[in-house]
Design a binder for these strands. Structure first.
Lengths: 350, 350
DNA sequence: GTTAGACTTGCATTCGTTTGCAACGAGTTT
DNA sequence: AAACTCGTTGCAAACGAATGCAAGTCTAAC
């Protein structure tokens, strides 16, 4: 034993205290120690005190890894987030982490540069035995099947699975765009352009097609659509591209998210010398913090992040408790924000 | 066995495949399976193929938790971040996660609403047997001692430990402020105000005192200082407060970070009807994405996040490999950004 | 004083890996 | 042909906690 310790000197000077060490010091069995540290297990007051004292003395901390091995619950969930350049995600991430943390669950974070990395990431989450996954990146049905086979519940955040069912929490993108379009039409806008998100983003698809549909209901069918990637930079470029394609700016630009809307406004004002909203109305989506900056005061639809986060956490935890539970989609309505980046008529009901 | 499976039906329909299952199917020993999945272990080509085929067939994935138990390496590191309202952190977090991920290390994320929660969070990181910790929240010497006793290396990000030594990666706050102040003085600014960060933030203390020192070197000793909390909102309020205290705006406002600088500009323009930079110069610190928005184009000092991130990852990994290694501080110089939110003289050396 | 009952406690097994040790075989040298 | 490599492989003992089961303790009721 002593010899063993000697050998380890080079690697780590102090072996971590285990429940056995505590047990020995307190003169009780290891199982007793385990029980003291498990809430709701039977242990007498005396026992509790002795164990706690001993544990405190040698700085014992239960090993969550070892516990996970035997209980088959790691109390970790994987959060997969793509494209953090979209400022919406940081806000989401904070709330998610906080919310899981409050429920005693740790968050293993995975960020994606490109959505194609998702396979590798899923593999990693599985190896780490996460109890569940929240993903703000799209999964195909093969991936969902794989997770299902592995018995890991997933909740998609603002994503719809392709050709497959899955538990999901979404903001009603189409309805949000419908509100925006209605207000714009109502205020007399006629020529529209759209800066969409990336092609592989269902959120973008829904927002764009929602806007187009509503526009067409109002008889507007010629709409210029340029593609962005949700970043400020791409909104900026989008505005320039629209100007180039049309030879002039349209009455209104509908950006698929706030970051691009802000980029678009920047380009309009800075490069194209157009006043916003006087010369061109710009609307976004999400309701991120920067949307409220005085210079922009975006007309947008704010996602109810707090409520969506809670729903996500609830759904995931429910599914972890009871894996048999069926799929469910919870769709939240966004909050319209009138802002000042678009010329809207005064009243314009909700 | 069958009976056992029956009992489990309610809990989880498919027990996860283990290395034993693979071994049985491939007709080899369990240790062989282990070796195939461990890069650099000796295993013949034939062995490798058979095992891989079997593993693939039943969807086997090595259990990182179990591995961690025996190797005493979880390959997870804890990242502790406070005050995510500061937009600087999301950018940092993405890069950190990406960088660790590239080195095969997972990130366990902890966010702090208040710095006082740090004790609880540290406790959690330890229970999860993280191999190391990166913290962008301040630790006192008791906490550092505790981590040291537990044998967990820590790297402080942009923090200085109180009354104690620790490995740290920082941006040179004082030097950055010195540059800003010099340029402002040089351009003829005379009356200054500062919007500082929260009191318990060493970054804020350094930035504020750095600015004050340099100002005093130039003979400016009467400086109004109001306190913020790094949020846009608090920068906004800060501007109003300064106006109230002084009865007018000063020549220049030095905000302890970009988010507050933007808030300050918003308040100046929107509420106080002052042009920026014509009526008042505003400078920030950090170089966040929003600082480049056309409406602000902040004069600021950009932290070299990418380089700092790499340094952080390197230092931590080094210390994990070799715990004996001494403390080290790596201080990076920020990149001055002239921007347009302050009236500076044309040339103004670096 | 005996016994039923409710709590506590300890024993021993289990979770899914890694890894030191020894055995084994094939190929090389003498 | 014997001796000696060297790369593969299997055996079995960890790692640190949770938990079913049985034994033990204590109280209360008869």
């Amino acid at each position: 034993m002593t010899r063993d310790n000697r050998q380890q000197v080079g690697k780590r000077d102090t072996r971590r205290a285990t429940s056995y060490d505590v047990a020995r010091l307190a003169g009780v069995s290891q199982s007793a120690v385990s029980r003291v540290f498990k809430t709701g297990a039977s242990a007498s007051q005396k026992m509790r005190e002795r164990v706690l004292a001993a544990a405190n003395e040698i700085g014992y901390r239960p090993n969550a890894i070892a516990r996970g091995l035997i209980t088959k619950r790691s109390n970790m969930i994987g959060v997969v987030i793509s494209r953090m350049t979209n400022l919406y995600y940081p806000e989401l991430l904070v709330q998610l982490t906080q919310s899981f943390s409050d429920r005693g669950i740790r968050v293993l974070l995975f960020t994606l540069e490109h959505e194609s990395e998702i396979d590798v990431v899923l593999e990693h989450t599985l190896q780490y035995q996460v109890d569940g996954i929240v993903t703000a990146a799209i999964l195909d049905s093969a991936q969902l099947d794989m997770l299902d086979a592995a018995g890991i519940p997933v909740v998609l955040y603002n994503r719809q699975a392709k050709d497959a069912q899955a538990a999901a929490v979404c903001c009603d993108q189409e309805e949000g765009e419908a509100w925006l379009v209605s207000r714009l039409i109502e205020a007399g806008h006629q020529r529209f352009a759209i800066i969409s998100g990336p092609e592989d983003s269902t959120v973008s698809t829904q927002r764009t097609s929602g806007a187009l549909r509503r526009l067409s209901e109002f008889g507007v069918n010629e709409v210029t659509v340029v593609a962005g990637d949700y970043s400020h930079e791409s909104g900026f470029r989008g505005a320039l591209e629209i100007q180039e394609l049309l030879g002039a700016l349209p009455d209104a630009v509908i950006a698929a998210n706030d970051a691009m809307a802000i980029g678009c406004i920047d380009a309009a004002r800075e490069v194209l010398g157009a006043q916003v909203p006087e010369a061109v109305s710009v609307v976004g989506f999400d309701g991120i913090g920067a949307a409220e900056y005085a210079a922009y005061q975006l007309t947008t639809v704010r996602q109810p992040v707090a409520r969506m986060t809670h729903a996500t956490v609830d759904m995931l935890l429910q599914r972890i408790e009871n894996p048999e539970i069926g799929h469910e989609q919870r769709i939240f309505q966004g909050t319209p924000v009138r802002g000042r980046s678009a010329r809207l008529t005064e009243d314009g009901g909700t």
